[in-house]
Amino acid sequence: MEAFYAILIGILFAGGIYGILRRSMVRVIVGIILLSQSINLLVFFSGGANRGKPAIMDGETAPSFSTMADPLPQALVLTAIVIGFGLIAFVIVLFQRVFSRLQTDDTQELFKTDS
Protein backbone atom coordinates (compact mmCIF):
# COMPACT_ATOMS: atom_id res chain seq x y z
CA MET A 1 0.00 0.00 0.00
CA GLU A 2 2.78 2.42 0.93
CA ALA A 3 4.57 1.76 -2.34
CA PHE A 4 1.45 2.63 -4.30
CA TYR A 5 1.06 5.93 -2.49
CA ALA A 6 4.74 6.69 -2.86
CA ILE A 7 4.50 6.21 -6.61
CA LEU A 8 1.30 8.26 -6.76
CA ILE A 9 2.99 11.10 -4.89
CA GLY A 10 5.93 10.86 -7.25
CA ILE A 11 3.72 11.05 -10.33
CA LEU A 12 1.80 14.02 -8.96
CA PHE A 13 5.04 15.77 -8.10
CA ALA A 14 6.50 15.14 -11.53
CA GLY A 15 3.30 16.40 -13.13
CA GLY A 16 3.45 19.50 -10.96
CA ILE A 17 7.03 20.29 -11.93
CA TYR A 18 6.18 19.73 -15.59
CA GLY A 19 3.26 22.12 -15.28
CA ILE A 20 5.33 24.83 -13.60
CA LEU A 21 7.90 24.65 -16.37
CA ARG A 22 5.30 25.21 -19.11
CA ARG A 23 5.03 28.53 -20.89
CA SER A 24 1.32 29.03 -20.39
CA MET A 25 0.26 30.58 -17.10
CA VAL A 26 -2.78 28.36 -16.77
CA ARG A 27 -0.53 25.31 -16.88
CA VAL A 28 1.67 26.89 -14.22
CA ILE A 29 -1.40 27.16 -12.00
CA VAL A 30 -2.29 23.52 -12.69
CA GLY A 31 1.29 22.60 -11.85
CA ILE A 32 1.14 24.46 -8.55
CA ILE A 33 -2.13 22.72 -7.66
CA LEU A 34 -0.70 19.29 -8.45
CA LEU A 35 2.45 20.03 -6.46
CA SER A 36 0.41 21.22 -3.52
CA GLN A 37 -1.68 18.03 -3.54
CA SER A 38 1.32 15.76 -3.83
CA ILE A 39 2.99 17.39 -0.85
CA ASN A 40 -0.24 17.18 1.13
CA LEU A 41 -0.37 13.46 0.44
CA LEU A 42 3.26 13.11 1.42
CA VAL A 43 2.64 14.82 4.74
CA PHE A 44 -0.51 12.80 5.28
CA PHE A 45 1.25 9.49 4.77
CA SER A 46 4.29 10.45 6.82
CA GLY A 47 2.57 8.79 9.77
CA GLY A 48 2.21 5.56 7.80
CA ALA A 49 -0.67 4.42 5.59
CA ASN A 50 -3.46 2.62 7.39
CA ARG A 51 -7.21 2.30 7.07
CA GLY A 52 -10.12 2.32 9.42
CA LYS A 53 -8.21 3.11 12.57
CA PRO A 54 -9.30 5.98 14.80
CA ALA A 55 -6.96 8.88 15.43
CA ILE A 56 -8.51 9.80 18.79
CA MET A 57 -8.80 7.12 21.44
CA ASP A 58 -11.11 6.95 24.42
CA GLY A 59 -8.21 7.21 26.85
CA GLU A 60 -8.77 3.82 28.49
CA THR A 61 -7.20 1.42 26.03
CA ALA A 62 -3.46 1.89 25.76
CA PRO A 63 -2.64 3.58 22.44
CA SER A 64 -0.44 1.64 20.06
CA PHE A 65 0.37 1.69 16.38
CA SER A 66 -1.69 -1.43 15.75
CA THR A 67 -4.92 0.04 17.07
CA MET A 68 -4.74 3.70 16.14
CA ALA A 69 -3.69 6.08 13.42
CA ASP A 70 -1.17 8.85 14.10
CA PRO A 71 -3.32 11.95 14.63
CA LEU A 72 -0.56 14.49 14.06
CA PRO A 73 -0.19 14.12 10.26
CA GLN A 74 -3.94 14.56 9.98
CA ALA A 75 -3.73 17.84 11.83
CA LEU A 76 -0.70 18.87 9.80
CA VAL A 77 -2.30 18.07 6.48
CA LEU A 78 -5.37 20.03 7.46
CA THR A 79 -3.18 23.07 8.08
CA ALA A 80 -1.26 22.43 4.88
CA ILE A 81 -4.46 22.12 2.85
CA VAL A 82 -5.79 25.39 4.19
CA ILE A 83 -2.52 27.20 3.50
CA GLY A 84 -2.31 25.62 0.06
CA PHE A 85 -5.88 26.64 -0.71
CA GLY A 86 -5.14 30.24 0.25
CA LEU A 87 -1.96 30.30 -1.82
CA ILE A 88 -3.67 28.84 -4.88
CA ALA A 89 -6.56 31.27 -4.63
CA PHE A 90 -4.10 34.14 -4.46
CA VAL A 91 -2.04 32.77 -7.33
CA ILE A 92 -5.07 32.47 -9.59
CA VAL A 93 -6.11 36.06 -8.91
CA LEU A 94 -2.55 37.33 -9.35
CA PHE A 95 -2.07 35.51 -12.64
CA GLN A 96 -5.38 36.82 -13.89
CA ARG A 97 -4.20 40.35 -13.05
CA VAL A 98 -0.88 39.75 -14.76
CA PHE A 99 -2.70 38.46 -17.83
CA SER A 100 -5.14 41.35 -18.04
CA ARG A 101 -2.36 43.91 -17.53
CA LEU A 102 0.32 42.43 -19.75
CA GLN A 103 -2.06 40.96 -22.33
CA THR A 104 -0.11 37.74 -22.57
CA ASP A 105 -0.14 34.40 -20.84
CA ASP A 106 3.20 33.38 -22.29
CA THR A 107 5.76 33.30 -19.50
CA GLN A 108 8.56 33.61 -22.08
CA GLU A 109 7.50 37.18 -22.63
CA LEU A 110 7.92 38.08 -18.97
CA PHE A 111 11.61 38.90 -19.16
CA LYS A 112 11.56 42.68 -18.86
CA THR A 113 12.48 42.77 -15.17
CA ASP A 114 15.23 40.18 -15.55
CA SER A 115 17.97 42.34 -16.96
Partner: peptide, 16 residues
Protein backbone atom coordinates in the same frame (compact mmCIF):
# COMPACT_ATOMS: atom_id res chain seq x y z
CA UNK B 1 3.41 46.41 -14.94
CA UNK B 2 6.93 45.61 -13.80
CA UNK B 3 5.70 44.72 -10.33
CA UNK B 4 3.10 42.31 -11.65
CA UNK B 5 5.69 40.68 -13.84
CA UNK B 6 8.18 40.47 -10.98
CA UNK B 7 5.40 39.25 -8.71
CA UNK B 8 4.65 36.36 -11.03
CA UNK B 9 8.21 35.05 -10.74
CA UNK B 10 8.59 35.80 -7.06
CA UNK B 11 5.32 34.10 -6.14
CA UNK B 12 5.90 30.98 -8.24
CA UNK B 13 9.42 30.29 -7.02
CA UNK B 14 8.58 31.00 -3.40
CA UNK B 15 5.53 28.76 -3.43
CA UNK B 16 7.72 26.07 -4.90
Amino acid sequence: RSQLEAGFKYVTINIF
